[in-house]
Amino acid sequence: MSIFVDKNTKLVVQGITGRDGSFHTRQMIEYGTQVVAGVTPGKGGQTFDDTVPIFNTVAQAVAETGANTSIVYVPSRFAVDAVLEAADAGVALIVCITEGLPVQDMTRVMPFLAERGTRLIGPNCPGIISPGQSKVGIIPGQICLEGNVGVVSRSGTLTYEVIHHLTRNGMGQSTCIGIGGDPIIGTNFIDCLEAFEADGATEAIVVIGEIGGTDEQNAAAYVSEHVNKPVVGFIAGRTAPPGRRMGHAGAIISGSSGTADEKMAAFDAAGIAVMERPAEVVALLKEQGVAA
């Protein structure tokens, strides 16, 4: 098992003929993801790499191929509508890799998705991979290993760093998910914690947070009440100055709120073992009784 994506994921790629979309579609197919359709308006009827049919709309792609998941690579000015189009077409899960979506637009996207029961991962995220089953996004497949550690993170490359340590030490992953660094995101830590707690293949959970907002504090409160599996955590940005946006739109200490220290204290109070540095993930999981 795994969470959100697995062997049954049938993927439609929005923006399949673009630079990023085409590159990562090939990577996903190579990894074994069932890529059943692509969408590029005006290129309907063509075929991507002689294997994947291209449609003009997501609705056509879903009707013809039974796609249940969509991934969005289209440029930012089209991305909001791409997400809404996928939700209207009835896919259950949308993964939005594109960054740069206006936050006020996201306040209107979220109720639209809620009305249709659609889950969104991202925007501005590296996507999700259930090793050995399906990769939907840009997390490098070769650094992952099948196993029983669930990884959830607001970051991209920092997640790779942690996964890399796990894999090198023989600790495989059930699912690795990057939820994105924006202020408003579709799937948050708590959604992932709930799913990992319920997932039979997941035995321990790694939570990687960063400065800004209160998602990590909320996650900590959720862990202390609802999660029985061991959880280890990391917070990036202890040296970040207040009031500055650290790359991610959501990574900003506002006044005295959203600091790394505050979040680490919340983790600690909730019984989450806190890493001082990413390389400690393996040792901390072992302390929690997770076997390599």
Binding site: L158, A236, T239, R277
Partner: peptide
């Protein structure tokens, strides 16, 4: 560094090992 999260984690690690970013 490539990536905001890793960039912050790198700064933090510099500090952890006694330096200043």
């Amino acid at each position: 560094v490539n990536g905001a999260g890793l960039a912050m984690a790198t700064m933090d690690l510099v500090k952890y090992y006694g330096g200043e970013p």
